[in-house]
Simulated assay, not measured.
Amino acid sequence: MKQKFETMRGPLSLCFDLDGTLVDTAPDLIRVLNIVIKEDGLAPVNYDHARRHISYGAKALITDAYKTQGRAVSGERVSTLQAKLLELYADGIADHSRPFPHVRKILDGLARKGHDLSVCTNKPGYLARPLLAELGMTDMFSAIVGSEDVPNKKPDPNHIFEAVGHNDPSRIVMIGDGAPDTLAAKAANVPSILMRYGYSTTPFYQLGGTIMLRCFSQLPSALIRLTR
């Protein structure tokens, strides 16, 4: 059954996922992943395969790298490598990561139209905020809320409400690229817009987004469709 949403009017609270939606962080995450798994003699991972798993976090990336190469690894070892990966990542968080095409221009245009922009990410806030600062994007957002900034991260709908600063579903749109985004949006009873260029192990047509886009430049027209 098709989900029904309240009629949307006026300036919106636009809640954005970070990795795979606003910023292509795969180059730096996979770079440091290859560094840490090399300690145990693993070969560099397949880039496209690992890219799809980024939304599940550093521990999942490491575990999948061992599984893919037919190697067993203990939970204790994964935790050790995760700590090293995050340390290396923090030291070069924006060495190769860049906003996806059109992101800066579109965000600027949406803000000028009066929409409120926030970030709701399952990336820890202590990494999300420096990343956006390095890219000169911090001032675009009224709030940047990471996974450890809330009691429960996406798909908990309260993660969205915390980011936008209210719980009025008639004013909120979730923009992301994966299952945590669509599930959180459904739980909050707000529409979701999915970027098909993002990071997802599940085919995008199976994620249940309200609207799916191929390019970030299509976002303004998608928002018009939602507010008619």
Rank of each mutant, 00 (worst) to 15 (best):
P99A: 04
D95M: 09
L61D: 00
L33P: 01
G57S: 09
S74P: 07
L86K: 06
R77H: 14
A60H: 12
G41N: 03
L85V: 08
Y66I: 05
D40F: 10
A90Q: 13
D48T: 04
R51I: 06
D91S: 15
D95S: 11
S74V: 07
I35T: 12
I37M: 02
K59D: 10
K84L: 11
I37E: 00
E87R: 13
P44H: 10
R31I: 01
S55V: 13
R98Y: 04
A65I: 04
A50L: 04
A43K: 15
Q82D: 08
G41F: 06
Y56F: 14
R51Q: 08
L33V: 07
I30C: 05
S97L: 07
H96G: 01
D64C: 06
R77Y: 07
R51H: 09
D64I: 12
R71S: 11
R51E: 09
A60T: 13
K38Y: 02
A65N: 09
I35S: 08
A58P: 02
K67V: 12
L33T: 12
S79F: 03
A58R: 01
V45H: 00
S97C: 11
H102D: 15
K59N: 11
L86E: 10
G75E: 15
F100T: 02
R77L: 12
G75V: 02
Q69D: 04
L42P: 03
G92W: 01
L42V: 08
